[in-house]
C-alpha cells in the first residue's frame, strides 16, 4: 500500500471509522487522494505515525478521534489531541506549517459532517 499524497486520515475506528462506514453505506467513497488508516483507538495514534506520513509526502494529516468523554479507553482521544498539539509545535519549530496536522473530534453518527469536512479540505 502506498500513500495518496493529499490527505492522510489517522482514524479511531470506533468513531471516525464508523462514520466512514456509515458514509460508505450510502454509496459514497473517499476521494482517491485521501488515505484512510483505521486505528483501534485515538490513543494508538503515535507522533511517529504523523511524522512518517509527512515524510512520506502527505500534505496534510488529520487525526480523528472520539469526543471527550466518549472514548472507550477513557482518554485515548485526549492523548491523540495532545500528540497532535505536540507535532504542531514541532512543525512550527522546524518552520513547517502546524496547520498540516489537524485534530478533530467526531462520533459514529457524524457521517454527514465527515463528508462536509472532506469536501471543505
Amino acid at each position: 500500500m502506498s500513500m495518496a499524497q493529499r490527505l492522510l486520515v489517522l482514524a479511531c475506528s470506533r468513531s471516525a471509522g464508523e462514520a466512514l462506514a456509515a458514509l460508505e453505506a450510502t454509496g459514497q467513497t473517499l476521494p482517491p487522494d485521501v488515505t484512510w488508516v483505521n486505528l483501534p483507538c485515538g490513543g494508538s495514534v503515535d507522533v511517529l505515525h504523523i511524522l512518517r506520513a509527512l515524510e512520506a509526502g502527505a500534505e496534510k494529516v488529520w487525526v480523528l478521534a472520539c469526543y471527550e468523554g466518549a472514548c472507550e479507553s477513557l482518554e485515548g482521544n485526549r492523548w491523540a489531541e495532545k500528540r497532535v498539539q505536540w507535532v504542531q509545535a514541532l512543525l512550527q519549530e522546524i518552520g513547517l506549517g502546524p496547520e498540516r496536522v489537524v485534530f478533530r473530534a467526531i462520533s459514529p453518527t457524524m457521517a454527514a459532517d465527515l463528508k462536509a469536512w472532506l469536501e471543505e479540505e
Partner: peptide
C-alpha cells in the same frame, strides 16, 4: 444524532 458540544460528549 451526535450531540457533543464544545468538543465534549
Amino acid at each position: 444524532c451526535c450531540k457533543a458540544v464544545g468538543g465534549v460528549c
